[in-house]
Design a binder for these strands. Structure first.
Lengths: 339, 339
DNA sequence: CTGAAAGCGCTAACAG
DNA sequence: CTGTTAGCGCTTTCAG
């Protein structure tokens, strides 16, 4: 590898000082057109490119945005990240991705992302802001924006989970279902708990009882947002005596709905003829399978999150800005009137 | 934000020089246990953390690995990235992700990733190495490894596409199909062209003619790796007169197979009863849909790619190392004997 | 075992 | 308009 060319080399070749070189490279106004051109030509000829670390150190910022994301593999995060990327591409910032295996293990990557000189701003995705984390974030030099979670002190972008849970359940009730089950991940997941509250709202509004016997919640790693957990829950549901069996189910996450759908199919129970099913998220496979669900605008959430972060980088003094999207009911083929 | 603490602060508090502080922080052996302890305690108390850019500049490396990936959104890439991440997590390196909208637009992100002082190594995913790119990479200070593409001069990890295409087609032929269509993205895509070659191999081996009328290839953006393109291809296939219609199809990518499957369903053609279908990749939705396909070990490919890169960082002189995985036939419900 | 000092490559006053 | 000179925060000889 040929010795890297620095501004000193350019300065020498162009017979100017390094200060001048730096000026033209950062197109500072106070430079004569003649030298400007000369320096540019030399830089070009030598194939100069600035040294990122040196610039970061001198400028005291990195042009890097860090995203901390649990379980990178899920469709939800893919979409969010796609939104981030697209919005970021126009901005000259690059993306540093810190993934963790679960929501619990997010602190280490977060710590790394927060390290001095690592990045200019932080995106915390789907990570509940515990008091400890809030304190840590508050005294960090870089601003943070929350995606899919909320805290009064920080910019955030999220979705109205309670309302989504309500609409999912109401849709089922309006179709005529009197007994609708809830399949959900661990109640320790804040969004899940909110969706459950919405479920309860809809039931109450329709004067339907909330029967804990048909609320299937899952614990374990990744808060139970898995196809497997949905599959198991549906098996339990189908094991209920005919008299007690619900005619519909709201799964508080599409992955779970997909698993539940698989369990129904394996048990020979037809969806929606014998059982209606609605999910939450609208991840890609849901379209293939024809799952009715509540759509979160994941891509837009990612875009907006970056917009907010860039804005705050520009104007640090702004009060925290919160945006809550309304989830939208996407009607497909997994729901129908009860038999 | 409180003024950041530097090694100067620690040095002062601990009454030593910054050189000593630096030594204990990098656990250099030649330091007395007494001062070592003292410095550590002060650093701890002050909540010191090193400045990433300053370290990078002084050390002349970043502990960052850059991955350049087209169409980040696809499941294939997410799995690869998950492999990268998991293997990376143990290593102390962080991941810088550069995404582009398509294979063509990969040069800009690649350029950024290659900038001096940006990262220590590069992962080029699913990007054909044109001569120009090969030259660029060869004179870059950072080593690169290719994932899902090949070039003799660089480490690479890929899959035997030709063999996969061969096995997919042979599977269909062995079931008794005499007329099997090929649904593929643009032939400009190298992996697609290889899979097509495998398709031709299997046909030739069985003394079956290769009928260009039932080879449906797609052009356009993202090389046609889309659900839509698969859908359209299947529509064209189904529009063929009954006598000319194939009884099976090999789609050279799962996304396309999924789209094709949708088109069949929409046309009332049952899979596999009336038409067998096999895909390539084994992305997640394929399992939901029951698609028979050829699996690429995406996660493992990602892991291995990082392993190779870290290895090369350690031993730059090594000759290029190439690994080719054999795709594995995953039997599901989309293939059967012809009616 | 420890300190002084010279960088790493670039930016940004401050003079002129 | 341009050059000199301090840094940015850390690592690493080189002496001692």
């Amino acid at each position: 590898m040929p010795a890297a060319v620095t501004i000193y080399d350019i300065a020498e070749e162009a017979s100017v000082s390094i200060a001048t070189v730096s000026r033209v490279l950062n197109d500072h106004p106070r430079v004569s057109d003649a030298t400007r051109r000369r320096v540019f030509r030399v830089a070009e000829r030598l194939g100069y490119e600035p040294h990122a670390s040196a610039q970061s150190l001198a400028r005291q910022h990195t042009r890097l945005i860090a995203a901390v994301v649990p379980m990178l593999t899920s469709y939800f995060f893919m979409e969010v990240i796609r939104g981030l990327q697209d919005r970021l591409a126009e901005s000259g910032f690059d993306l540093l991705v810190h993934a963790s295996r679960s929501v619990e293990e997010v602190d280490r990557p977060m710590e790394r992302a927060l390290q001095r000189g690592r990045s200019d701003g932080l995106l915390l995705v789907s990570t509940p802001l515990t008091p400890a984390r809030a304190i840590r974030l508050a005294r960090a030099p870089a601003p943070a924006v929350l995606v899919d979670s909320f805290h009064p002190d920080f910019d955030s972008v999220s979705v109205d989970n309670r309302r989504g849970g309500y609409e999912a359940t109401r849709h089922l009730i309006e179709l005529g279902h009197k007994r609708v089950a809830l399949i959900m991940p661990s109640a320790a997941s804040v969004p899940a708990a909110e969706r459950r509250a919405g479920y309860a709202d809809a039931l109450a509004e329709a004067n339907l009882p909330l029967d804990e016997a048909i609320v299937f919640s899952t614990d374990g790693e990744s808060h139970g947002y898995t196809r497997r957990a949905g599959y198991d829950a549906m098996q339990r549901l189908l094991a209920l005596p005919a008299s007690a069996r619900p005619t519909a189910a709201f799964a508080a996450a599409d992955v779970m709905a997909l698993g539940a759908n698989g369990a129904a199919r394996d048990a020979g129970v037809r969806v929606p003829e014998e059982l209606s099913l609605v999910g939450f998220d609208d991840v890609e496979p849901s379209a293939y399978v024809g799952l009715t669900t509540l759509r979160q605008p994941m891509y837009e959430m990612g875009q907006l999150a970056i917009a907010k972060l860039l804005r705050r980088l520009r104007e640090p003094g702004l009060p925290p800005s919160h945006t809550t999207f309304a989830p939208r009911l996407v009607l497909r083929q997994s729901t129908a009137e009860p038999a």
